[in-house]
Structure formats: structure tokens, C-alpha cells
Write a protein that binds this DNA or RNA. Structure first.
Lengths: 239, 239
DNA sequence: GTACGTATGAGGGTTATACCTCAATCCGCT
DNA sequence: AGCGGATTGAGGTATAACCCTCATACGTAC
């Protein structure tokens, strides 16, 4: 069984990568994970730059809240506290829902057991951190390390494939900063304000503003502060 | 002569460090540099965070513009373009003023020669970059490497001593960030806005704002962007 | 007990930055 | 010639950050 999970995972992952429709992705993942007890799925794009972690839900399926009903996207977002836990996660984690004195509680666990819903949450990271996640749930799930690794492979491929299919291709922009852009960003990192940089360089403040916008786009940063951290990391500006 | 410059420099530097008044600093520096042809002086605190480099002039003396008059502080600031060059300087540099077709021009040179005023500009750097500078000028100056090094020693000590004497002591605040402060700054560096961080941490936005102010004070930063660069450099947050 | 530092919160207000979108010029390359 | 990228600039507007100052509560050390 464990050997089958590992052997087959690569084929499944490749199949997902080459899937031509979201439906094909769903079917492939569903078929692969069903033998391990997973019959609930949610796949979404995410970002750490906003408090609402979930940007877009690509796929949600199954009775997630054990109330006999398949859940819709909005309900899932509002009710599942495990989603929020992704902000602190560095790797996939199992969670379990227990019925305690204070009502239902979700906990991160190593080995989910007992009645109720359990799940595996798999964050997908990219160059700028969190990009998305997949969550798989069930009542009697195989939570072995092999299955965890296999599902991580498959889920990551599913996320990337879904994103490829569903997100409009963004016109490629070079991520390489021009010399002028580096210069402007270095001044910002030195504590200068836009107006002062403009005066120093003999530009309009609007130009400095536009350079910074361009810089953020190139680096995929939400804020200029983030852009500085990224640029330092890449060696574009000095620490 | 060169050996005398080097041997005596340390004594002079120590004397400057222990000087009890700005007058004593001036007298010591003046006496030391006169044999090398320097008879014009300006000592000032500076910052790279503003386009007006000069923050405060501690000492200005001599006929800086060769018009037979000792210059006052405001005139020096307005007329000397070499001051601005400090923003790009990483080390002390000699400059010379030439009379060209377009009027008088200042140039950075390795060996000042010819008629007119020459000088040595010595930036003083600290943990956050440029903190001040001293400029020494004359018409026939000794621009040897030994004198340059010696004067750098003395001038740096002069700047620090003058600052100690003239700037009001600021109540010492620990520069060590608290855990909460590090946490808040890490979120900023990850691209989160203050309002979002507040929601994530369960605080008021005003509290986040206050943490950031505290962070900037501790790190001696003018802007939050600068604080991020400093914190990355110090290892307080991850790159 | 007192003093200090951290954490939290805010009144009242100003400044700076950022968003969306458009545009022109110059240069290098095909 | 056309095209793309870098550089520069902006209209109109909204959002976010920041400033100065004040305050309370809690924990720790002396």
C-alpha cells in the first residue's frame, strides 16, 4: 500500500501537470486520494500580504463541516480556521477537529485520530512566499508520512496546474531592475522620501513615484517596504 | 616631516577627544594642520536622509571663497558644491577649484595643485551612514597620503567631540527590538499594511502604528523602509 | 513600596505614498 | 521602418502612514 502510494504519485503528478481542464485535475486528485480516505477537497490561491488569506478558490468539494451538506466557497472561507493557520505554516500539516467543552475546536496534530473530520493542509510556496494551498479532508484518513509526501506532490502540481488554467496570463515583465530603479530604491532604503530623491536626482516627484511602482511590479511586491527586503535579499541594493 | 605628522596625530587626536570646549577643539586642529598649509575649516553634522546635506555647522573659519572675507555658515552652505559631493563619497577626498571657461569649477582630484583654494573633505560615517564631515582648505596644502590619514583621524575625533559637546544628550533608548516589535516589522517586510497586521495580531491599528514609531526610534531610522533595511542588516528580521 | 520597560490604545491632525491610467522621447535591435 | 524597453512626466484621486502627545496596565527589579 505504502509502496503503491509512492510509486503512483509521480504518474499522478505528471497527469495533473498535463491536465487540460480543472475538471481533469479534480478527477485525477480525487481518484488518487480516495483510497487514503480523503473525500473533501479545497484548492485555492493565497497570499500572506492580506489578512484575508484566500484570494481565489479554484475547487471546493465535499461535506467539510460534517453537516451533511457540500459546502460552497464562501462558507468554507468563513468557517474554516485552519485556513488562517497557513500564515504560520512552513510545511504541510495535519489537523483534527475535536468536540470540546467550548464547542468544536481545530488543532494541528501529528496523527489525526478519532471521530469527526481530519485533514491535511498543504501550503504552496513560491519566490515571494505563500502562493496557494490545498486542503484534503476525510473522516478516516491515511496520515502516514508517505501519503503526506505523495499528496504534497500531487497537491502542489494541482495548484500550479489550476492556476495556469484559471488565471489570465500576465504579460511578462522583466524582474531585473534597471540601474535607475536600483538607484531610486537605494535612496528609499537609506531613509529618503520621494520628494527628496526627486530633488537629488533632478526629477519630478511623479517620476520617482512611477519608478517605485515599476520596482514593486518587477519584484512582485505589494509594498515598497517589501520591495526593499526582496531587493536586499537579491543583492540589488546593499543591506 | 611625514613621520612627524604620523607620530603626532595620535596625541592630537587624543587631545581633541578630551577637549572640554569647542574652542579647544578648534585650537588643537588649527595648530596641527597649519604646518601642512590648511587654514580654512568647516565642521558640520550631516545626513543622507535629506537633500540639504548639512544639518548643523559646528565650526566654520577662514576665507573659503578667496574673496578676502571669512565666510559665515549660511554662505558656506549655499556656495560650496563640494559639500554635496559627500553624498557620493565613501572616503576622504581632495578637491580643487579651477577657473575654467564656465567660471570657477570644483573637481575631485588626487593631488591638488595650482593657484587657488584646495581642500580635503573628510566624511564621518556611523552605524546609519553619513553623520558629519570636516573640510580643511588652503592654497598650498600638503596632500600626501600620510597627512590625509592623519587629518582623517583628527577630523573624525573633532567631529565626535564637537557633537558630544554641542548636541543635547538624547535620552538613551535601547536599540534592541522587543519580540513584539520584531514581529510587527517582519509583517511589514512581508508586504502587509498596518491595518492588516493589526487584524492578524488582534490589536488596534494605532498600536501597530505606535510599535513602528518605536521601532524607528530604536533603529534611528527616518522611515520604516529604512528601518527594514537596518533590521535585515542586523539580523532582527529575515531577509 | 518605587521605578522602569513593554504592550496596548488613542485624540487630533498632517504628510506622504500609492492607485489607475495615459503619454512622449530616446535608444537599440530586428 | 517598427517594436520594445528605459526614462520621464502627469491628471485625478484615494489610501496609508506618520507626527505630537497623552494614558493605563502589567511584570520585573531593586
Amino acid at each position: 500500500m505504502t509502496s503503491a502510494a509512492g510509486d503512483n504519485a509521480f504518474n499522478v503528478t505528471l497527469a495533473v501537470e498535463h491536465a487540460g481542464t480543472l475538471t481533469a485535475i479534480e478527477e485525477t486528485v480525487r481518484a488518487y486520494s480516495a483510497p487514503f480516505g480523503y473525500d473533501r477537497f479545497v484548492l485555492f490561491s493565497a497570499t500572506a500580504a492580506r489578512d484575508e488569506v484566500v484570494e481565489r478558490i479554484y475547487w471546493v468539494e465535499g461535506d467539510w463541516f460534517d453537516d451533511g451538506e457540500c459546502v460552497d466557497a464562501d462558507t468554507y472561507i468563513r468557517r474554516c480556521p485552519m485556513t488562517h493557520h497557513i500564515l504560520e505554516a512552513k510545511e504541510p500539516f495535519f489537523w483534527t477537529k475535536t468536540q470540546g467543552k467550548k464547542g468544536e475546536q481545530y488543532r494541528v496534530v501529528r496523527a489525526p485520530r478519532g471521530d469527526g473530520i481530519h485533514g491535511l493542509q498543504i501550503p504552496v510556496f513560491g519566490p515571494l512566499g505563500l502562493e496557494g494551498a490545498m486542503s484534503l479532508g476525510g473522516e478516516r484518513i491515511n496520515a502516514s508520512s508517505t501519503v503526506r509526501l505523495a499528496l504534497t506532490l500531487v497537491a502542489t502540481a494541482a495548484f500550479c496546474a489550476a492556476r495556469r488554467l484559471l488565471e489570465a496570463p500576465v504579460a511578462e515583465m522583466s524582474s531585473q531592475l534597471s540601474n535607475r530603479e536600483k538607484e531610486v530604491l537605494a535612496w528609499i532604503a537609506a531613509g529618503r522620501r520621494q520628494a527628496d530623491i526627486a530633488a537629488t536626482l533632478g526629477l519630478s516627484q511623479r517620476t520617482v513615484e512611477n519608478h517605485l511602482r515599476r520596482i514593486r511590479q518587477r519584484l512582485g511586491a505589494t509594498t515598497t517596504a517589501q520591495a526593499i527586503r526582496i531587493a536586499v535579499h537579491r543583492g540589488d541594493i546593499e543591506r
